[in-house]
Simulated assay, not measured.
Amino acid sequence: MSEVSVLIKDVPVRERPREKLVKEGPERLTNQELLAVLLRTGTKSESVLSLAQRVLFHFDGLPFLKEAAIEELQEIRGIGAAKAIELRAAVELGRRIHTYTEEDPYIIRSPEDVSRYVMEDMRFLKQEHFVILCLNTKNQVIHKQTLFIGSLNSSIVHPRELFKEALRRSAASLICLHNHPSGDPTPSREDIEVTKRLMECGRILGIDVLDHIIIGDRRFVSLKEQDCL
Rank of each mutant, 00 (worst) to 15 (best):
R77L: 07
E86C: 03
L167F: 11
T101E: 15
S50G: 15
I214V: 14
Q145T: 14
V91L: 15
F163H: 01
S173W: 07
M122H: 00
V209S: 02
V11Y: 05
H58D: 06
F124Q: 01
V48Y: 09
K138M: 13
E128N: 06
G206H: 09
G42T: 12
L210I: 14
A81R: 12
Y100W: 14
T195C: 05
I76W: 01
T43C: 10
I107G: 04
M199T: 11
V131P: 00
V6N: 05
N31H: 14
S47D: 10
I214R: 08
C228Q: 10
E112M: 09
R28I: 04
S110C: 07
T101K: 15
R77W: 06
R77G: 03
P63A: 09
L174R: 03
L162E: 00
H158W: 00
K44I: 12
M199W: 09
P111I: 02
G206F: 10
C228G: 00
I149Q: 12
L51Y: 07
K83F: 00
A81P: 02
S115A: 07
G94V: 08
V6G: 03
V114S: 02
S45L: 10
P17G: 08
I204R: 11
N139W: 03
Q140F: 05
P187Y: 05
L73Y: 01
I204C: 01
P159N: 02
L152I: 15
P187W: 02
V55T: 10
I76H: 01
G183F: 06
D191W: 00
E71T: 12
G25W: 07
V157P: 03
G94K: 06
A90G: 04
V6Y: 06
E33I: 12
L38N: 11
T101A: 13
L34N: 11
L198P: 09
I192L: 03
R96C: 04
L147Y: 05
I213K: 04
G42Q: 12
R218Y: 03
Y117G: 00
R168H: 11
F59L: 02
A172C: 10
K83G: 01
M122W: 00
F163M: 01
F220L: 00
L21G: 06
V13I: 14
V114H: 00
P111K: 02
R168V: 04
Y100P: 08
K44R: 14
H180V: 02
K224P: 02
G80P: 01
T43W: 08
A52C: 03
E3Y: 12
L147S: 04
A81H: 09
L167D: 08
N139G: 04
A166E: 04
E102R: 13
R160A: 09
P159E: 02
D121S: 10
D104E: 15
K144E: 14
A166H: 03
G202M: 11
G202Y: 08
Q145F: 08
S47C: 08
L62Q: 00
A89M: 10
L133A: 08
R197A: 13
L62I: 14
